[in-house]
Structure formats: structure tokens, C-alpha cells
Design a protein around this nucleic acid. Structure first.
Lengths: 127, 127
DNA sequence: CCGCGAGTTCGACGAGCGTCGAAGTTCACA
DNA sequence: TGTGAACTTCGACGCTCGTCGAACTCGCGG
């Protein structure tokens, strides 16, 4: 693994539409969230005491085999949504708030179509 | 099509982990966003004048055939992320802020593992 | 050194997804 | 009435994905 942390590069400024490259990066992250198991895994990790959890802590919540859980965790890790660290016998996973926060930042403007810069007409000026 | 608007049912309260049902609903929406084309489509629709766009307005941004664009729009519509309305010759798409906002609301607590509900002081290290 | 428990990797199988061309539908306009 | 434009639906093609069992790696305890 020589992966230098897949931090997204999406440019900060815009109620503008995403360009193709940004979309590819972001879609990869959203795709990782597009599975119920992975979404719960991430949720369980984030909600766990100390913000981290080892596999044995959370695998009991699923009726899936070990390899499958491991596979999903790998997808989350490759997408940059979690980090993993081995400590003795156990491997601990931890969410990456910066990356997840970027995804939320992308959704917010899509959920507020009329806000921000747009046309300075009579709509709703922030005074 | 007898689809009564797939509004998500996810319960509002929780820095708690998602349950299985919530995860299935939310993952379906995230999966719809897990494709670069669909992400850009949604972005283009939301960024378009008036918050709506007809297919011919946005299909030029892709090197894809009409059927493919139509397919992706259908996925977005089935996921509840957009609505469509025919007006004369053209079909106009519009983002659904309530649904998209729910997705953002799910990501925010995952991106702020230590914050959440109580504990009004931001003592980062509880031990 | 040896065995065990925790996770990961490997290989395979079926289901699902993205894409296209062709055909169908709906509306406007002459 | 009929011709064309704007989408959508249909059927098909490869490729990807989620899942599993088996085999492998790593670290601890005896």
C-alpha cells in the first residue's frame, strides 16, 4: 500500500456545478457509502467509544462472514473514509472527519438551490 | 409509476449508530450519488437557472447517448433525489432539497465524531 | 517452538450496473 | 394529417460488485 491519503481535491468555491474531475472523486466516496453494510460500519465506528472500533467490536452487528466485513472495511479505507491501525492482536478503524465533512459540504448547496450568489434579483437577499 | 415519493423515514434523533432499516434507505440514496454522471446531473440541475433544467439543457455536458442520460435521470428520480415534470415538448427536472438535506444531516455527525448531542463544552479529550 | 485467535487475501460465483442502438411515445407545428 | 423533435423504454452486451469458503499473515501466550 503506497497510498498517500486520498484527500479530495474539490475546489472550495462554488454554488457552481461540479466539473467532471470533481465528480469522479466525489462519486467514488459516495459509492462507498452506497451500501447498507458500509454505511452502518462507518456509523458504528464513528459512534463507538473513543471514535474508534476494532473489527471484533462491530462485526457482531451483521450476519456476514469475516471476509465480507473485511472487504467492506477495505472499500471504506480505499475511499478515504476511514483509517486502520493495528495494535497488537486487533485492528482499529477510525472515521476521517475531514473527508466526510467534504461530502456533506457538497450536498448542502444541492439541498439549498436558491441560496448564495445567484441572481441579485428580488428573491432573498441576506440583507 | 405509482410511487408515492420515497421520502426517507430516518429518525431524527441520534449521534447513535444507524439501524439496519435506516441504512438501507440511506444507502440507496447514496448509491444513486455514487456515479460521476449522476452527481454532475444533480449538480447541473441544482445550479441551473430557476433550480430546474430540461434534459436538453444538460445532456450536452456529457459524451453519452440520450438513453444513457435518461437512464441516470431515472435512477435519480427513483432514489427520490429529483422530480420530473413534462411541460410541452420538454421534461424538466428539479432537485429535492428535503431529501438531499437529509443525506447531509446523516454525514455531519459522522464527520464530527466527538461533538454530537450533550456535553456543551468542547473538551476534546474525555480522559 | 507451537498453536490459537484476529483479520486479511484469494478465487469463484451470481446478481446488478452502465452503456448502447433500435423502437416506442408524446407533443408542437404546419 | 403528417412530420419532426424530445425523451423514454426495451433488449442486449460486458464489467463491476457483494458474498462466501479456503488459505494466508500477524501477534500473543504457553
Amino acid at each position: 500500500m503506497s497510498k498517500p491519503l486520498p484527500l479530495l481535491v474539490s475546489s472550495p468555491a462554488s454554488n457552481q456545478a461540479l466539473n467532471a474531475e470533481e465528480a469522479v472523486e466525489l462519486a467514488a466516496a459516495f459509492k462507498a457509502l452506497g451500501d447498507p453494510v458500509r454505511l452502518r460500519l462507518l456509523s458504528l465506528i464513528a459512534a463507538h467509544e473513543g471514535g474508534e472500533a476494532c473489527v471484533c467490536d462491530i462485526s457482531g452487528a451483521f450476519e456476514l462472514t469475516g471476509p465480507t466485513i473485511s472487504h467492506h472495511l477495505k472499500v471504506l479505507r480505499t475511499a478515504g473514509l476511514v483509517t486502520s491501525e493495528r495494535r497488537g492482536t486487533w485492528v482499529y478503524y477510525r472515521a476521517r472527519p475531514e473527508v466526510i465533512g467534504q461530502l456533506a459540504d457538497v450536498l448542502v448547496p444541492l439541498g439549498t438551490p436558491l441560496a448564495s450568489t445567484c441572481a441579485p434579483d428580488e428573491s432573498e437577499l441576506p440583507a
